[in-house]
Write a protein that binds this DNA or RNA. Structure first.
Lengths: 369, 369
DNA sequence: GTGAAAGCGCTAACAT
DNA sequence: ATGTTAGCGCTTTCAC
């Protein structure tokens, strides 16, 4: 019924089959077996070695002479042989599967990170499973545990704020599951990737101070994210270095969403002495700030300068284009993936990588009015 | 070295092992075997049936009495048994793996679609593999073929413009690989999902005409996408219904990017008789239009009304918020996934689903100046 | 309606 | 440096 390539050749069997092949309908046999249906024993027979030797070559294991290695590789290439993933998993002790754990699915940030992790996995012939999770610390440990065990994960990549759930990390360690985190709140002694967000923000504040601004406000990020702390700390550093005293009224709560930035800005603009510049802890909130400012008939950066953090696509797509801090999101995903795989292969060898940021100066910041 | 849960219980062996279990270190055995390490034969032994019967129950196959079925289910539940995915794949003829093929990775649209497809797959215990592809018709067929064969895909979900590559579709059919498409250019006789984009756009034009606009421009989408054709057709329909003659100068090329919308709008505004309203074929281009208009010191919708298509997050995050057509992107992904799985299970049973659109009227459209 | 045996394609452990 | 054997945990086939 199903128009599938049929099942001829399902058993080409051992070495002695070369003879059998010469009989009956040999041509049909070859033709009907789609590429990829070649098995390790076909390669072994063709190369005149045992299956195990082929296996060694494929997995870069020692104890194969360079000559044999080359010969096997050539046959693999010629036969277009690709190992059956499930057979490898079933026979071996690894699943060649890692998962990326995340909350807040529809963000540009995560899409970029995901692409990076995928790059890393593909390069090393690992599979990536996506695990969107609702982050409510209650049952997250149980959920992740179920996932890890059912899917036999070899490791996980964690994204904020899941990076900071102590109970989860402890459980992963107990289970012996390697993990790698992106922008963890306490990155020390971890495997993963971070950006020096604090310095980045301090530089951004210096930029604003250089434009003459003295009343610089900050819209904080979501309290569950370590990034919110770092960005606040950078803001304070920046003020101090510019010799600007902190006005607590200029530091307001946000939550990383457009709406929270919009609302926070309205509160700031209602102040008796409103700010002339606003640093929002991410781009979405900065977009909200611009929306609120425009809605009052004011304009950016003429009346108020605005800047953000992340350099997501929205930064270039709003008017005026947003001054922001760029983190190399996709690279971060890739590096987090690579370090995880290293940790999987050689326990204890994964490390913490710090990647550089860059200030993207665009049109949303200008001289103090 | 690795702190892994150890390997005790790796061979509980046949039914007769119940006896063995009662001896030696039985408690240790239970404790050390993590959840998920229960095997089908454990379930069989516990339920007093054969492995095959358990298998039948798990796969909803016939020829099991309701009583037995219930008993097995209870044991499965109690033992928290989960079949080993790789073992199923290796033994069976299915891979339980489908891939989503896409180009243009970092779009909100695709992220939403992906979540929908993932929903469908998870609900049916299928795995989803992501296949970002560079769409240059040259070697795409070979690339996809390699992917399909190597990964033993059971099917693929196609997104625009990969949906419209005739050579690819033909090859997939030859290989007997089911596929499901989202917004294919020629959806007839296909499995997948579509929106009546043409009618949606016609309605949008009616909205603009109702606000008094007569000079309504259209920025076209990327020519490789069927959506561009539909949206243009809807624009023409809308004009005709409103009794507005077509001015070819008001229809300009775009390419779905912010920049293309920005440039196109500058061309439109330079016209001797510029438009008072612009319908851009997607939200990114509409954002570009707003950017270009603002840059000239004009404002939206006071001087020019702007509307888009898709209702991606950017529509709410720019100022003014964008009037646009909302397509239920995530649902579309989910439905495309479900239809694909149906097609996989029962050839010929997958179908084409049409999902509804809605007009999102926001602040970027207003009365003709 | 149910079960026993034979693989699926690969790797681990143990030869040699 | 290389080969042999025995599974991994499930489904298939075919017998009952």
């Amino acid at each position: 019924m199903a128009p599938q390539p049929d099942e001829v050749g399902k058993r080409a069997a051992g070495v002695e089959d070369d003879a059998a092949l010469a009989e009956s309908p040999p041509v049909k046999r070859r033709i009907d077996r789609p590429v990829g249906r070649v098995r390790i024993e076909d390669v072994a027979a063709e190369a005149g070695v045992s299956m195990k030797t082929v296996s060694r070559v494929l997995n870069d294991e020692p104890n194969v002479s360079e000559a044999t290695r080359e010969r096997v590789r050539a046959v693999v290439e010629r036969l277009q042989y690709r190992p059956h993933p499930s057979a490898r998993v079933l026979a071996g002790r690894r699943s060649y599967l890692v998962a990326m754990l995340y909350d807040n699915p529809s963000s540009n940030y995560l899409m970029e990170v995901e692409l990076g992790v995928l790059d890393a996995c593909q390069a090393q012939h690992y599979n990536l499973m996506l695990a969107p999770l609702e982050y409510d610390a209650k049952d997250i440990v149980a959920k992740v545990e179920a996932l890890v065990l059912q899917s036999r994960l070899d490791g996980v990549v964690l994204t904020p704020p899941i990076t900071d759930d102590a109970a989860l990390l402890a459980r992963l360690d107990e289970l012996g599951i390697p993990w790698s985190s992106i922008s963890a709140r306490e990155p020390n002694r971890r495997v993963g990737v971070v950006v020096d967000e604090r310095s980045a923000v301090a530089e951004m504040i210096a930029h604003l101070a250089g434009l003459g601004h003295r009343r610089i406000a900050h819209i904080k990020g979501h309290p569950a994210h370590g990034a919110s702390e770092w960005r606040l700390a950078g803001y304070l550093d920046g003020l101090e270095r510019a010799g600007i005293g902190l006005d607590p009224a200029l530091v307001v709560e946000g939550g990383f969403s457009y709406e929270s930035g919009f609302d926070a800005t309205n509160r700031l603009l209602d102040l008796p002495e409103p700010p002339t510049a606003i640093f929002a802890a991410n781009d979405d909130m900065a977009a909200g700030a611009i929306g609120a400012i425009c809605e009052r008939g004011m304009s950016v950066p003429k009346h108020v300068s605005v800047c953000g953090f992340d350099d997501t696509p929205i930064a270039r797509h709003i008017y005026p284009a947003l001054t922001t801090v760029r983190q190399p999101t996709r690279d971060m995903g890739r590096l987090a993936g690579l370090e995880l795989l290293r940790e999987i292969r050689e326990r204890g060898q994964g490390s913490l990588v710090t990647v550089p940021y860059t200030l993207q100066l665009r049109r949303s910041t200008g001289p103090k009015p």
